[in-house]
């Protein structure tokens, strides 16, 4: 293979002084000195989170404060890094919520594994898991970064929904009983 040796062009006198470059740099600095600042004093100042932002996956409750998740485990199935672990249970047959059959017993998301892809939210048939605006989480141990059901509901809170699935189901059941 032929080797071609390139000769480096020698610097001119002006270039050897570095003065033009320093002046150009100072000009940029000076211009930014009078522009409005874009730096946020994090964590005191927080950025605006746009709509549809994919933060930490959280569990949400419905307007009646019931858990929406029915432990169908589709999110566990679809999760690419396998961060989700669910064990389910059958709810008691009596009481106010007798028409709800199934709920998660434990619901764990390993936040160290989660890649914030949002597949879980997309696949959820009950709209129970949402990637909301929480983007910064930390912990002192690996175990602390596995969020359990309680923590996930605490982060998720209540989201408005227009389905009222269980309310409708209850109303239908009661209407049928009257016949």
């Amino acid at each position: 293979m032929a080797v071609k040796i390139l000769k480096r062009r020698p610097l001119s006198l002006l270039e050897k002084t570095y003065l033009p470059q320093i002046l150009i740099g100072l000009k940029i600095t000076l211009r930014n000195l009078f522009r409005p600042s874009v730096t946020l004093q994090y964590p005191e100042e927080r950025p605006d989170i746009p709509e549809g932002y994919r933060g930490v996956p959280t569990l949400v409750k419905d307007a009646n404060g019931r858990e929406k998740c029915v432990a169908c485990q589709l999110c566990e199935f679809v999760c690419p890094p396998r961060a989700i672990r669910i064990t389910s249970r059958e709810l008691e047959t009596g009481g106010e919520d007798a028409h709800i059959e199934k709920a998660p017993d434990e619901f764990e998301i390993d936040m160290l594994r989660c890649i914030y892809c949002g597949y879980c939210q997309e696949v959820c048939p009950e709209e129970a898991i949402w990637l909301q605006d929480v983007f910064s989480i930390s912990g002192y141990s690996r175990e602390a970064m596995v969020f359990d059901k309680e923590k996930l509901y605490q982060l998720g809170g209540t989201l408005p929904d227009n389905h009222f699935k269980w309310d409708r189901k209850k109303a239908e059941e009661e209407a049928a009983k009257r016949h």
Binding site: A71, E76, F77, E90
Partner: peptide, 9 residues
């Protein structure tokens, strides 16, 4: 077996 595991797993 009811509610213990989804069959696709």
């Amino acid at each position: 077996f009811r509610f213990r595991m989804r069959v696709w797993f």
